[in-house]
Each structure stands twice: as structure tokens, then as C-alpha cells.
Nucleic acid binder design. Structure first.
Length: 364
DNA sequence: CAGCCGTGGGC
DNA sequence: TGCCCAAGGCT
């Protein structure tokens, strides 16, 4: 814990209180080393920090854990991941969402393998230049994996800082003020723990609703709490309403239970993922068997609703028995293979509408 | 900059 | 039930 160097700026009282809180209350997570280890100069594995940070982008810790363990088991280091195919990674990522992350994961692994000899660069700027690594992730990796005093700002930290300093400018405009306040707190001592502590505080104490201010190490400093309205911060602009789109999906079922799949275009929504054949999706709808990519005895099999971030989808599902070779650009997926396909959740829902338990029958 | 880009959980 | 939210990045 003792600073070996004497030229470091002293910890502010706030940072000291935060780190003391973190030493007692830090979460134990699969990709994290303990504060005690960090204090001994042990660095987390940059590969594991990178992988976890990308998975955690707009995704809950609970959802990430299972995927992180599966990925690190299968690809223990960045060279192993670089040796994998994009399709392998998309299949393993299926269900986690925001699939451009998976495509950029592969691109980033390739760059680190080929241009950096399998070692992640250790500066914020060089990290920021890698695919899928933006301002937040570059700062987080620099701080957590390389102990650099980067200013890390994520949603948790935005919430903590806007409350602490009663910043009532709406996001994202408030970002500059948040950065300015935060830069005054970050020091060269334990920058990785400092950022992780703020994030843990935001997720467990300084929560969006009903924060547990009584337990907060900043309870005597917090300007929002002094106003008795911590929930008022951060201020955000109202969100655009979510339009509804309609479409049709077609489940072609072979006698042996195989289902016909195809691959989506590499860019855009669910880019590069697998899907069942379907119509386009639009606000008007009215799609039916005439919109199927090939003729068959299509029978209605129900309607599913799926909520994406910026629109809701109502998908009319049709099914038909079909035999013979797969049409051009498509393939038959046997029941035992279905679980391993790169099927996004919306497509699993469509298939389940026609074939109940399609993804449980072959569960090991 | 604002829109696009998934999913599941909490209240 | 509908809405908000979660360790954002890309264009």
C-alpha cells in the first residue's frame, strides 16, 4: 500500500475514502484480481480485461459471467482467439446482443496478434485505435490492466459524479464537466482500483433508483444528497418513442427435424448472424406466404414480439414441411446442431413458436 | 451529434 | 405492463 515513489500526488480525501470502501466491499468477479493482489503490483491479464470490458458494454455483469467463462475456456489468450474464425466467435456470442462487438472482437484479436505480437498495447491512445475499443474501454483497460491514471467514465461513474457535484447539465453534454471533476480525483496510486471502486459504488450503492446513501463513503460530500434528491441526477434527455415494425418468418422443417437457415448480411442489425428465411420488416406489415423466398405449404404458427433498442418487432411465423437440398445460400441445421448456430434471440423465439423446445430437446 | 445497434432483469 | 437500465462503439 505504501507508495514507493515520493513524487506522486497525494490521494485526495475522497479517493482515500473510496479506496478504503473498495478494499472492504469490492465485488468478486471472474475477470478481476483482488485489491490485495493489485496492491502487490500484480496486474490483471490484459486479454481478460479487454474481453470482459467489451462484453460488459451495455450489458449486465450477470449476463456476461457465463459468456466470459465459456470464451476464456475455449480461447485462453488473444492468439487463440485470433486463430478462431469470425463465425466461431459469432456462434459463441449468440444471445449476448450487439453483435458488432463480436465482429470487432475478432478484428481486434487479429490486430493484436499480427501487429503487437500477441501483446496488448499499454497506452490509452494505442488501445483506443483498436477495433471495438472506444474512449471508455481504452481508459478502463489502461487503468485496470496497466495501472495507468486514465480518466474512466462509464454510466455508473457518470451517475456517481453528477450526484456528488450536482451536475444538472443533461447527458451527454455533461460529459465535459464530469471529466473535469473526475480528473481532479484520479491519481497515479491505484488508478485501476479507483475506477473499479467507482463502478462498484455505482452498481451497489449509488443506484439509479433508491440509492443506499446511508452506506456511501461519499455521504458527507454528496451535493445531491444534501439536496435530498439524489435520484434527480444524472439529468437525461427524453428518449425517442419506439416504433413498431412487422415482418414474416418462415420455418422450413425437414422430416428429420432439421430447420432451414441462412446468414444475414455482415453489416447492420444482427449482422453476420444466422436467421430463418423471412420477409423484410417495415411499419406497414401485411407480409405472408407470398413473401417467402421459396414456395411451400406455409401454415400460420403464431406471432412473436421482440423488443429491440430502437423498434419493436412483430413477426408472423409460418411453417411448412420441406424435403430436398437447401436452396442456394441456405443450409439445413439438424436438431443437434441448432443450439450451436449463431442464432440471435429473436430467431430462437421464431423457431420456438413453430417447434416448441427446439433448443431444449438436444440439451446435454 | 444523434441514430443505430440486443437482450434480460427489475420495479 | 411498460419503461428504464446495464462497465458503449461506430458512423
Amino acid at each position: 500500500m505504501t507508495l514507493l515513489s515520493t513524487d506522486l500526488p497525494p490521494l485526495s480525501p475522497k479517493a482515500e475514502r473510496l479506496l478504503a470502501w473498495y478494499d472492504r466491499h469490492h465485488r468478486v468477479l471472474p475477470w478481476r484480481i483482488s485489491p490485495a493482489e493489485a496492491a502487490r503490483g500484480v496486474h490483471a491479464d490484459p486479454y481478460r480485461i479487454w474481453l470482459s470490458e467489451v462484453m460488459l458494454q451495455q450489458t449486465t455483469v450477470e449476463a456476461v459471467k457465463k459468456y466470459f467463462l465459456a470464451f476464456t475456456e475455449r480461447w485462453p489468450d488473444v492468439l487463440a482467439m485470433a486463430a478462431a474464425s469470425e463465425d466461431d466467435i459469432l456462434r459463441a456470442w449468440a444471445g449476448l446482443g450487439y453483435y458488432s462487438r463480436a465482429r470487432n472482437l475478432k478484428k481486434c484479436a487479429d490486430v493484436v496478434a499480427q501487429q503487437y505480437g500477441g501483446h496488448f498495447p499499454d497506452t490509452e491512445e494505442s488501445l483506443r485505435a483498436l477495433p471495438g475499443i472506444g474512449a471508455y474501454t481504452a481508459a478502463a483497460i489502461a487503468a485496470i490492466a496497466f495501472n495507468r491514471p486514465a480518466v474512466v467514465i462509464d454510466g455508473n461513474i457518470e451517475r456517481v459524479v453528477t450526484r456528488l457535484y450536482r451536475i444538472d447539465t443533461p447527458l451527454p453534454q455533461a460529459k465535459a464537466a464530469i471529466r473535469a471533476e473526475l480528473a481532479g480525483l484520479v491519481t497515479a496510486d491505484r488508478p485501476g482500483d479507483f475506477s473499479q471502486a467507482l463502478m462498484d459504488l455505482g452498481s451497489s450503492i449509488c443506484t439509479p433508483r433508491r440509492p443506499t446513501c446511508i452506506l456511501c463513503p461519499f455521504k458527507d460530500d454528496c451535493e445531491a444528497l444534501a439536496l435530498d434528491e439524489p435520484e434527480r441526477f444524472p439529468v437525461k434527455k427524453p428518449k425517442a418513442e419506439r416504433p413498431v415494425r412487422h415482418g414474416a418468418a418462415f420455418i422450413a422443417l425437414r422430416a428429420d427435424g432439421a430447420i432451414l437457415l441462412r446468414k444475414r448480411p455482415d453489416k447492420g442489425l444482427l449482422g453476420g448472424m444466422a436467421e430463418v428465411p423471412g420477409s423484410s420488416w417495415d411499419a406497414t406489415g401485411g407480409f405472408g406466404p407470398a413473401d417467402a423466398p421459396f414456395a411451400a405449404d406455409w401454415q400460420p404458427a403464431g406471432t412473436i414480439t421482440h423488443i429491440f433498442t430502437h423498434f419493436a418487432l412483430m413477426l408472423d411465423v409460418y411453417q411448412a414441411q420441406l424435403e430436398g437440398p437447401a436452396p442456394a445460400g441456405m443450409w439445413w441445421s439438424a436438431p443437434s446442431d441448432l443450439t450451436g448456430e449463431a442464432l440471435p434471440t429473436v430467431m430462437k423465439k421464431a423457431i420456438e413458436a413453430a417447434v416448441p423446445n427446439a433448443f431444449r430437446r438436444q440439451a446435454r
